[in-house]
Design a binder for these strands. Structure first.
Length: 421
RNA sequence: GGCGCCGUAGCCAAGGGGUAAGGCAAGGGUCUGCAAAACCCUGACCGCUGGUUCGAGUCCAGCCGGCGCCUCCA
């Protein structure tokens, strides 16, 4: 399979480190608000990648984090006068329910940031020992000037980073930093904020450290694939690379970096700050999960696209056609041979996940089945293939309900988020 | 400003040197008591200007236009 790796800016043949297993990490949500269509796009896109890898026989080990303590959640907690943990648990449960409805394969590990505080402290200590970080008045910072490779993912020239950052009104005047570009690994407790004990005093983890820590902890120092939304490239993923490669001393931290494009609505990027959000859950009151998955799959993961009802109507019609094909009665005339369609489907997916082309193959196969059924031909083998290929897209066809394994896997994660709410 | 993506029919698009897939919409038709569905038929100065070439959506250069990201974000 070929995948576009933004690290090398080229489509490269993908081979995992181990011949039969793939390690993948996808940046998760900050649970302080609801799951919108952009989240659904990202997580179903990586779900398709993971399901396709499994379809090809790989054993996939998948980690997704939950950023349950950060500036946004704490701000939200102050705004609404609620405990930050209650907010995090509530919105994580909400996210999980949406993932279940969409039949998204659960990650094998779904840790909160606060589940790995001690491991994060160890990462920060490793960075201090290696000389890439410094402690300053109870906080610890990554010293970007100490690592010349900072910028290799986003390719922003070093000289540009600081002026750009300053232009954007960010406050480079934290007196505790040596360099305004340095980012925090551990921040000393602010009044009223939650804190954990550390060698540098009470505080909480910085913005990027959880992903570096979890990735190494659950998957190893070098992983095959790291995914997330394209808006995370800089500084989040850039900083993750710096932390991980400096802390473990091993390169690369990630072999393939994959990013999903942003979903647009009303002509602008769908974003919390612009207020043009479309909630996955609201769409699911009108459209079937299969239709929504086909709708999302009809857009290539690297192409930005505009949300609109017309394409959803098309997707719903397609979902119905696939469902009809999966259940059409067969006869005894010569069978419909699904082999060529299966090969075309695989060819499309091998080409950097050309999901649009792959869905077109599903539709063509469904039409062959419907035609064959009408002509009294045997369609069982073709229907088995349709189900098999549809499963790569997480389609349930006539099953109606999400896959029981999907529900059970997420339910197990869900239990850990229901205690405080 | 930097980095990146992209301009192909009304819309979504495939194709990445050999003479323009497909889908939606629109119009016409078949079928139907009417309608729907289904099926058939109908559409392109490939952003502009140069260059390379026997031949350029396709490669190169330059321009024009759109979009994304740039320590809030999937």
């Amino acid at each position: 399979m070929k995948l576009y790796n933004i690290l090398t800016q080229s489509v490269e043949p993908f081979e995992p480190q181990e011949p039969e297993a793939v390690t993948i990490y996808v940046c998760g949500i900050t649970p302080y608000d609801t799951t919108h269509l952009g989240h659904a796009f990202t997580y179903t896109a990586f779900d398709i990648l993971i399901r396709y890898l499994e379809f090809q026989g790989y054993d996939v080990r998948y980690v997704q984090n939950v950023t349950d303590v950060d500036d946004d959640i704490l701000r939200k907690a102050r705004e609404v006068g609620e405990n930050w943990m209650v907010i995090g648990d509530r919105w994580t449960a909400h996210f999980i329910q949406d993932m279940q409805t969409l039949n998204v394969r659960p990650p094998d590990y779904f840790p909160r940031a606060t589940d790995v505080i001690s491991q994060m402290i160890e990462t920060v200590e490793a960075l201090l020992d290696a000389g890439y970080a410094y402690e300053s008045d109870g906080s610890v910072y990554f010293h970007t000037a100490a690592w010349p490779e900072y910028g290799k993912l986003s390719r922003i020239p070093r000289a540009e980073m600081l002026p750009i950052a300053n232009e954007h009104g960010n406050v480079p005047d934290d007196p505790k930093k040596r360099d305004p570009l340095d980012f925090v690994l551990w921040q000393a407790q602010a009044p009223g904020e939650p804190a954990w004990d550390s060698p540098w005093g009470a505080g909480r983890p910085g913005w990027h450290i959880e992903c570096s820590t979890m990735s190494a902890h659950y998957l190893g120092a070098t992983i095959d694939i790291h995914g997330g939304g394209a808006d995370l490239v800089f500084p989040h993923h850039e900083s993750e690379i710096a932390q991980s490669e400096c802390a473990t001393g091993q390169q690369p931290f990630v072999r393939f970096w994959l990013h999903t494009a942003m979903v647009h609505h009303e002509g602008e990027k769908m974003s919390k700050s612009l207020g043009n959000l479309v909630m996955a859950r609201d769409l699911l009151t009108t459209w079937s999960p299969d239709a929504l998955r086909l709708y999302l799959g009809c857009h290539h993961y690297r192409d930005a696209w505009e949300h609109g009802d017309e394409a959803l109507e098309h997707a719903e019609a397609l979902a119905q056609k696939l469902r009809r094909a999966a259940t059409a009665a067969g006869g005894h005339s010569p069978p419909v041979d699904p082999t060529p369609k299966r090969a075309t489907f695989v060819e499309a997916m091998e080409r950097d996940l050309d999901t649009r082309a792959a869905i077109a193959v599903l539709e063509a196969l469904a039409e062959e089945i419907l035609d064959g059924s009408e002509a009294g031909r045997e369609v069982k083998a073709a229907q088995d293939t349709l189900r098999n290929l549809g499963d790569v897209f997480g389609l349930r066809l006539d099953a109606g309900e999400p896959d029981p394994r999907v529900v059970a896997g997420w339910d197990e994660h869900l239990r850990r988020f229901e205690k405080s709410s």
